[in-house]
Computed example of a mutant assay.
Amino acid sequence: MSGPQDRDRDGFDDRDGSGWREPEHLGEGSSRGDSTPGGTPPADPPQEPQRPAADPGWQPPGWDLPAAEPARPRDPGYEPWPDRPGPQAPPQQPPARGGGLFGPRRPRQPGEVEKVFAYQGDPVGAQGWAVQNGWEISDGTGPEDAALGLLLTTAPTRLTRDHRPAGVMRGRYGTLDLVAFDVVYADTRRMVPEYAITAAPVLATLPALRLSPVRFWKHRTGGLAPVPSGDPQFDDRWVLLSSEDSPVVRRLVEDPTVRGLLLDSDDGDEFWSAGAGGLSGGYVAAIRPDGQRPELIEHHARLLAAVVGALAAAQA
């Protein structure tokens, strides 16, 4: 049997429910009446004011501007301004080229160095020139070419194992026996000449020498010291490095012929004696980043003749 204490066991009150109120978050008033929990009747919603029938209500600024008229009517008697060309500038004559206070200038004549190294197509070629002058030609792989490896290993430039001599030419120029060749390397399917070397074999014992332009980067200079010439103009452009400071070495930079030829050049060649320290039966050589051609062979021959002559005079 159930007693009065069991009336809320199922969560509902079985009485008339007159004390129940709906929670405020579910609405206003009771589901059983039209009044709010406090007995106050609900307020009526606000009503909008009455507008005239022609009043469109709120509009954004500029919404009621008049429509654009692409062709506006013009006033009677309007005439457009005539299109008349403006004042034209008088034609000007181009200034005469090369004019000056004393008349037109004469065209500049190239110097001797520019004539030597100006590209002219070389229709004959270095080997053709060598044949015409009675020189011998080899491909750089013969038995007599094995000694050229000494020039490659002592050259003042950075040469690798891929560099080898090619287009070797041997002959006599004036009083010197010369050997001239290209230093080439393989580039895919062709050989590229990178340097041109011209050397004069000598029988005298020479110290290690390096005569280079000051602007050149120096390689393989271990054990070499600069030897000044005493001429500031020459020392500003050329530097002599040697393993010893002897009268033979000083005679090289004090010789007026050597200094005159080098100062008249474009500072593009380097000279050295093949081998480190004393060397008997070596070379005095010149190198330039170029390929051999007749003008370059003759240019190197003149410089080597002066260098070898100065060294020979000092040893006499």
Rank of each mutant, 00 (worst) to 15 (best):
S2D: 14
D10T: 10
D13Q: 02
D14C: 00
D14V: 10
G17L: 13
E22I: 07
E24I: 10
S30C: 06
R32S: 14
D34M: 05
D44N: 09
P49M: 09
G57K: 03
G57E: 00
D64C: 12
L65C: 09
P66E: 11
P66W: 10
P76G: 05
E79A: 07
P80F: 15
P80L: 15
P82K: 12
D83Q: 14
D83S: 14
G86T: 07
P90G: 09
Q93H: 11
R97Q: 13
G99N: 14
G103V: 00
P107E: 15
R108W: 00
Q109N: 10
P110L: 08
V113M: 13
F117S: 01
Y119F: 14
A126Q: 02
S138W: 01
S138L: 02
P143C: 09
P143E: 01
A147Q: 13
L159V: 08
L159G: 03
T160G: 06
D162T: 04
D162M: 01
D162N: 06
A166M: 09
A166Y: 11
R172L: 09
T175I: 07
L176M: 11
D177I: 01
A180F: 06
D182F: 01
V183K: 02
T188L: 08
T188N: 04
R190L: 11
I197E: 08
A208C: 12
A208V: 02
L209Q: 03
R210F: 14
L211A: 07
F216Y: 02
F216L: 04
G222T: 12
G222I: 02
L224W: 11
P228L: 12
G230K: 08
L241E: 11
S242F: 00
S242I: 04
S243I: 00
E244F: 09
P256G: 02
P256I: 00
T257Q: 01
R259Q: 07
L262N: 10
L263F: 04
D264M: 11
D269W: 04
E270M: 14
E270F: 06
W272L: 08
G282Y: 05
P289R: 04
E298D: 12
H299W: 08
R302C: 04
A310L: 10
A316Y: 00
